[in-house]
Design a protein around this nucleic acid. Structure first.
Lengths: 115, 115
DNA sequence: AGCCATGCGCAACCATTGGTTGCACATCGT
DNA sequence: ACGATGTGCAACCAATGGTTGCGCATGGCT
């Protein structure tokens, strides 16, 4: 079954979602449907510029898309891509779970054998 | 249900597991049971010192523990803590899934109403 | 016993990244 | 027309993931 993690393939998605600030931004965007760098920064402990950089990262990996509207730039989550990211997380989690289960099973076998 | 992610509480665990090299190190440790900075670096594209730093990070958050044996320092995964980390990942994934499902449901409702 | 090889830690250094502040520019509302 | 608001750009800073080089301790082999 190939290496446990999907290796280099989606490190970009992982590292995008790996940052706590970006995770919270995604939460906020999911909760309110959309937001701008300014509106998000008001709900976060970081500056508008920091938020803007994060939005650039999220956009680069396709997790968000932007709709310029007047002088505002309205961001919203790309649901399909987020679903993909969730799948990645699940995959890694399940792989580790499987490893842990296997280890446990082996440990029990040893236990049994040395009876 | 509190904010979607578990907020600041376990950012440490997340960021430990967020690094691709560290994820692969965990994979390797799970696969072979244990390893040293040297043995791991041989199976990774980074130097022994880089691996050593990562091991320090993993040890700090409790994901690995170390057993000095002669001149070697043998690391192995702390299964309980890794299970905790997996739970974190699942939690975030499930929360996002729920959000996405809710969005979809709302979208369908709107669709239905404007019949 | 003595010696060389092996495994590790420490320090200096570099690039990237997440954060800041300050400023310039565009757009919207009165 | 003008001020307030929303963005973008640039300079700068600290932390982090990476490197190389060196010194030290321990273990195995003659």
């Amino acid at each position: 079954m190939s290496p446990v993690t999907n290796a280099a393939i989606d490190d970009d998605l992982w590292s995008a979602v790996g940052d706590p600030t970006r995770r919270r931004m995604l939460d906020l965007l999911l909760a309110s449907g959309s937001g701008t760098s300014t509106s998000l920064s008001e709900q976060l402990p970081v500056s508008r510029q920091a938020v803007a950089k994060h939005l650039a990262v999220l956009e680069r990996v396709g997790l968000t898309r932007v709709t310029p509207s007047g002088r505002e730039r309205l961001y919203h989550v790309d649901e399909a891509q987020l679903a993909r990211a969730v799948a990645q997380l699940s995959a890694v989690g399940e792989a580790w779970d499987a490893r842990l289960a296997r280890i446990k099973r082996i440990a029990e076998t040893i236990q049994r054998n040395k009876k």
